[in-house]
Design a protein around this nucleic acid. Sequence first.
DNA 1: CTGAAAGCGCTAACAT
DNA 2: ATGTTAGCGCTTTCAG
Lengths: 368, 368
Amino acid sequence: MKSDPVNMEVESERRPATAYEVAELAGVSQSAVSRVFTPGASVSATMRAKVLDAAQQLGYRPNLVARSLITRRSSLIGVAVPGTANPFYQAALDALSTSFARIGYRVLLFTSDPMAGSDPILDEVLRYRVDALVLISTSLSSHFADECLQLGLPVVMLNRKTDSDSVSSVTGDNRRGAKELAAFLLAGKHRRFAYVAGLEHSSTSRDREAGFLEGLAERKVRHVERVVGNYSTADTESAVRTLLSSATPPDAIFCANDYMALVAINLARAEFGLQVGTDLSIVGFDDIEMARWPIFGLTTYSQPVELMVRRVIQVVERQLSTAAAPAVQHIVDGELIVRGSARIPQTGVVRSADHWIWRSRKRSDASR
Amino acid sequence: MKSDPVNMEVESERRPATAYEVAELAGVSQSAVSRVFTPGASVSATMRAKVLDAAQQLGYRPNLVARSLITRRSSLIGVAVPGTANPFYQAALDALSTSFARIGYRVLLFTSDPMAGSDPILDEVLRYRVDALVLISTSLSSHFADECLQLGLPVVMLNRKTDSDSVSSVTGDNRRGAKELAAFLLAGKHRRFAYVAGLEHSSTSRDREAGFLEGLAERKVRHVERVVGNYSTADTESAVRTLLSSATPPDAIFCANDYMALVAINLARAEFGLQVGTDLSIVGFDDIEMARWPIFGLTTYSQPVELMVRRVIQVVERQLSTAAAPAVQHIVDGELIVRGSARIPQTGVVRSADHWIWRSRKRSDASR
DNA sequence: CTGAAAGCGCTAACAT
DNA sequence: ATGTTAGCGCTTTCAG
């Protein structure tokens, strides 16, 4: 029930104040207002005070839409993330959002269908004139990649890559990680191996499979059971069910990522009454937070999310500043984290920070 | 090595084509181009074909920034989500992103510090002229809420609410859910109860606590051990550790959400060797996907994310269309899902769809 | 149905 | 240091 005139106009629904209105109130030019709200501009203290005061009164907030139109920079980063329950994506998205915020960018999110490519929505997102695109575990057509290249729009893939090296990527060391896991399993005296693949078209799953087979082949192991989990709960369950129902079930299973490994552990225990780590070894890839929950104690090869995101940001920043900076394929190191879900070899396990890690002979020879 | 003039310009890095350029190529006016790309406009087939063709050649994409400037609608929804590992948030965000996309909106994400309020970043996000704000488990100052109200900006809180009813909210039935969990635990003949609170300032945690105490009080149980988990892994671990180390540890623990309940189950098993569901009962709230993993089998009160998100969207749409539509506080029904993490009462458990649920006498009397 | 013209709210030369 | 002016790329009256 206030009735003083100053508040009156505020009571009713009003459109946001403009710089022009602030200028009028402060008795200065509109460009002066603009300068006060532009970081690197030169304004006298008096002017700043007057403007800030007027702005305060009107609840003025610079319109970034208008600013974007003229600067051609939106300070928006388009981020694609697959619509699945995989905690690794959540962690990556979180880190991206937080890190980009620190350097003045916001994340424009689009949830991609993990099965389909991301082109259709990407196209939509380009209309918003995002300053860069980050694709978490999502692929894009080379046609689209070319278009982005021509537009000078930085694109970086996180946890995925393309055959062409014209698009930047940041991935874990899929090949070596998988190879080490193979060596680890071999050292643990396992005999019958199985691989649970992710999505068939995912470079990550393919690289991990290749590394795994390679590691196994070095010790003359040729036969590896192969099933497909598609990174989904349901598919992984039936895949693992198939594996374990076999007449000669595997004694070591490598899942293309931790999420599937967790699903596998669950199933092995609940449906087959298996003691994971003893009766059956299961390993994954990622080292998501839940992997270290005692109940799972998953042995896995780590992908340091924070570090990977930092790399993504570096790449984006470089491409943004340098006109045609070349695309780069970053591979971030990981470690084979030893926990209880797989039989532990006699040798090679060492303490590192707050966990145990394992290194194959070959690698530890080549000291850093 | 193409050299035809048409492609030449496309080869080099070029700024996006404008409607004006398309118009020129097509030999029509710029407004004609605009019309072709505006859903409800009237254009002849000939015109549309000419324009579309030219647009195709130039790779034209309407600039939504420019469009927003004039229409004053960005088709952006600001969404705040706490930066924690809680899978419930991920599920909610996923559903929001997907559902909003279907009606033409994109999500502008900002990760909020779960401890702090969301005001600082919200202010930042308003500069982007988002069409609405959705806060997932995040609170905002009443001052800020007022400002949004005056701007006619729809704000809806998901899984959180304020004391003031001037801001819309969609929540689960925290009070009743917690009360039923109390009744369930009572029916299971438990004697010593404990509550693991979430963040102290969270309405959700407070409501659940109140409901729990109320349900217990109806059967004259006055003493409830209380610890605080802050929805975080570390705090929950030490809170539960305290509880279980006590001389007279509880035989029933209600955690303010599923995530903390999962952490509690882990800890009880790993550190105390307890058989959860037999030695100790633990229940949660949310019914996240992992709650039904056999390894956890968490008894919990459900919050149907999809439905809640649908409500959020309804509220947003109404506020967007009707100028000053009143704020509403939606409460979405849930069910007490019975699994193995808590002792099961002799009566009251019934089959519903693909799971077991439990209803207190009082409630089942009042048939629908 | 189509074109011309006037801005949306702001930044960026260019003067002063 | 401050004001003036000219757009950014689009939508939207308003004529024709």
